[in-house]
């Protein structure tokens, strides 16, 4: 139940100095989501410039002209409101192994990012997804843009249970049907799917002009491959498929190599598609991930 920490004051206090990094504007509509620092209609004075033909005379600074006898146009910082969607994988694989509490770890990271986004008055929502009973189910919160509303997320966050199958492409289909303006998408998952699935999903999201940050979570035991020696009967948490393996030292090495290979492939794909990739292996490293890895990788500033 790591997600409980997301609402602890001490934890939130350490997040106050962090903000989500947003690299580029995706929309020019006034009053709507823009990314980046652009001029536009706003309430916050940014600078003055000499009048040029075509400038909106409503922004002419009449006082300055009276004192300086020069035509100066006031420029304002445009009103920026970015929709931040934090997608959290809530499939059954996120609940296994239980000791790792991967889902709690993912919810903790997602909540922290949401808190940081709210601090910048960005519209933030949390969406969990999993394929359940043959249909992709997305559980969404509303958009919250004020930090004081952050506690309202608590019931949602604490109510998430791991269940169903991970299908990122199907999740993308559902998400794009919303036809939302491009924004920031933070995808938190173990990415234990066919690479074609996440590649399809991420490609399509990027094509929709969303800025994507992929956070790859795995548990301590899961990533280190600590299993009992001997004959093991393994059951896939999502498909229920059973397979027997002879767990030996060599098998454990093969397992660990497999984990690294999958993570490397995901990272390479993300790099090729300008997607920020964060490797968050082990819930014990949550503070390090938030305060060091997120800034280093440009997730937060």
């Amino acid at each position: 139940m790591l997600e409980v920490r997301a609402f602890e004051p001490d934890f939130l206090r350490r997040l106050d100095r962090l903000a989500l990094a947003i690299k580029r504007a995706r929309s020019g509509r006034v009053g709507q989501r823009t990314l980046g620092r652009i001029q536009g209609i706003g309430i916050e004075l940014e600078n003055f410039k000499s009048y040029a033909e075509g400038d909106d005379l409503r922004f002419l600074d009449w006082n300055a002209m009276a004192r300086l006898d020069d035509l100066l146009i006031r420029t304002y910082r445009a009103t920026r409101q970015v929709e931040v969607t934090i997608l959290i994988d809530a499939s059954a694989s996120m609940g296994v192994p239980k000791t790792d509490d991967k889902l709690g770890f993912a919810l903790l990271l997602g909540s922290a990012l949401a808190y940081m986004g709210m601090g910048e008055s960005d519209a933030v929502r949390i969406v969990t997804f999993a394929m359940r009973r043959g249909a992709m189910q997305l559980a969404r919160t509303g958009f919250y843009s004020r930090r004081e509303l952050y506690p309202d997320l608590k019931p949602f966050v604490l109510g998430v249970r791991p269940e169903g199958i991970t299908q990122l492409a199907a999740m993308t289909d559902q998400l794009l049907l919303e036809r939302r303006a491009p924004g920031l998408l933070v995808l938190i998952s173990d990415f234990l799917v066919d690479p074609a699935d996440y590649e399809n999903a991420l490609t399509r999201l990027a094509a929709a002009r969303h800025e994507i940050k992929a956070i790859h979570v795995m548990g301590d035991h899961e990533s280190s491959g600590n299993f009992s020696a001997g004959m093991l009967r393994l059951r896939d948490s999502e498909s229920g498929t059973i397979r027997e393996v002879a767990m030996t030292a060599d098998s454990a090495d093969r397992y660990r190599r497999r984990v690294e290979t999958m993570a490397q492939r995901l990272r390479d794909f993300c790099q090729r598609h300008a997607i920020t990739y964060v490797r968050a292996f082990g819930a014990a490293s949550v503070d390090q991930v938030i305060t060091r890895e997120f800034p280093r990788l440009g997730v937060v500033v």
Binding site: V96, P97, K102, E222, R233, L234, E238, T241, R258, M262
Partner: peptide
């Protein structure tokens, strides 16, 4: 043993 995915094995 329940594992997250048999892909890892």
């Amino acid at each position: 043993i329940d594992v997250s995915s048999l892909m890892l094995f």
